[in-house]
Structures are given as C-alpha cells and as structure tokens.
C-alpha cells in the first residue's frame, strides 16, 4: 500500500480532505491523517491543508515539530498545499500584524481589505472572498489534466499569496484584482481554493494528484 499522508497540525477540519482523497484514491493507496513525522517521511505523497490564522498555523507546526518534516516532503515528493497550506509556504504573511512563514516560496501573503477599492466598486466586495470563482490555468500541468480552462472552484479566504517569482504561478483568479490562486514548482503544487469542496473539478484535481509522479 502506498501512503498519502494528510498533515494534521490541529488547524481546521481535515475530514473532508480525507474523505475526498479516499473517494479518488486507487485501491493500492491508503489515505492517513497524521501528525507523525515518521509517517510523513514514509508517505509516497503528502497533502498539506489548513484553515485559520497564519500565526496559529505556524505556532502549531512549530509546537508539533512539523516544520522540518513538511519542508522535507516539499523538497522530495508529490506535495499538495491547500488554502493555509499554500499561504504558510510563503516567506511572510501580513496576517496577525505579520507572521514569518516557511519561506519555501519567496513572497508575501496579503490582505484583500488593503487591496480592494471597496468604496468605489460597483459591487459590494465582501471579505472573506467566499464562493465559486474561476481559475485561469496559466501553465499546463499534470494537476490540471481533465479540468477545463476557467473552471470554478470553491474559495474561502481573506488573504492571498503574492509570489516574487512569476514562474511559479500556475493559476490566477479575479476578485476585482487578479491574484495567484495556484502555484507549481517541481514536485510542489499548492492552491488557494478547496478542491475537496469543489465538486467534480475538485475531485479531478485530487485524482490527478494521487497519480502524479511529481514531475
């Protein structure tokens, strides 16, 4: 049995990620929600989800000694970050008056509230950015396989990533401003939206991940 490890660091409900992966995994794959460094190290592929505030996420990762195991996985095996699991891969987040993050990707995490011109917009732009929005695939990638250009995915977030290196951008979304909604680099793919809550297209992305060799 090859193992798909879902990293559990106490931030958010991992049941839906777990169930959605089980739904698409092949019979030779086992999904396990874990905070055990050994299990993460022995997994064939790793999913790094997360919900909540940046400061809490980083604190929990540190308290559980999970930063190095997660970084190690992100260096060597198929790795999927989801929502906060994307944001904490960046250098630094604006949330909670500034939080240093894992710095796997250079760049910051910014607040919609400071970017959107809400007073002059024709629409009431609400924060969090919540609901189904289009994702423009800016590169072709095995994880986009079978998903139509511009498909809608489910988002719920108030902060967005702003990578310095444009070459890592794999998907973009417009919420008055255009922001990066997916990044890809080597064996890492990470998304701002929730594939586990995005119906058929989300399941397709997860299925692609379970079959991806990380190249």
């Amino acid at each position: 049995m090859s193992l798909i490890a879902v990293v559990d660091y106490g931030m958010g409900n991992l049941r839906s990620v777990d169930k959605a992966l089980e739904h698409v995994a092949t019979s030779g794959q086992r999904v396990c929600v874990t905070s055990d460094a050994g299990e993460i190290a022995s997994a064939e592929r790793v999913v790094f989800p997360g919900q909540g505030a940046a400061r809490d996420c980083m604190r929990e990762l540190k308290d559980r000694n999970l930063i190095e195991p997660v970084m190690q996985a992100a260096r060597e095996k198929p790795f999927l970050g989801i929502c906060m699991g994307l944001q904490v891969l960046m250098s630094r987040s604006e949330e909670n008056d500034g939080v240093d993050c894992m710095d796997l990707f250079k760049g910051g995490v910014r607040y919609f509230g400071s970017e959107l011109d809400r007073d002059n917009s024709e629409e009431l732009l609400k924060i969090p950015h919540m609901g189904w929005n289009n994702v423009t695939q800016t590169i072709s990638h095995p994880l986009w396989h079978g998903i139509k250009q511009g498909s809608r995915f489910y988002f719920v977030h108030s902060y967005f990533v702003d990578p310095e290196d444009e070459a890592v951008v794999a998907g973009e979304t417009t919420y008055e401003i255009v922001f990066t909604s997916a990044i890809a680099c080597d064996n890492v793919f990470a998304v701002q939206f929730h594939p586990e809550k995005s119906a058929a297209d989300g399941l397709q992305l997860l299925k692609n991940f379970t079959q991806w060799d990380g190249k």
Partner: peptide
C-alpha cells in the same frame, strides 16, 4: 469571470 452568486 468573477465570483459567482450562490444558490443554497
């Protein structure tokens, strides 16, 4: 191309 209004 923008955020969809939801039906629940």
């Amino acid at each position: 191309m923008s955020l969809a209004k939801r039906i629940i």
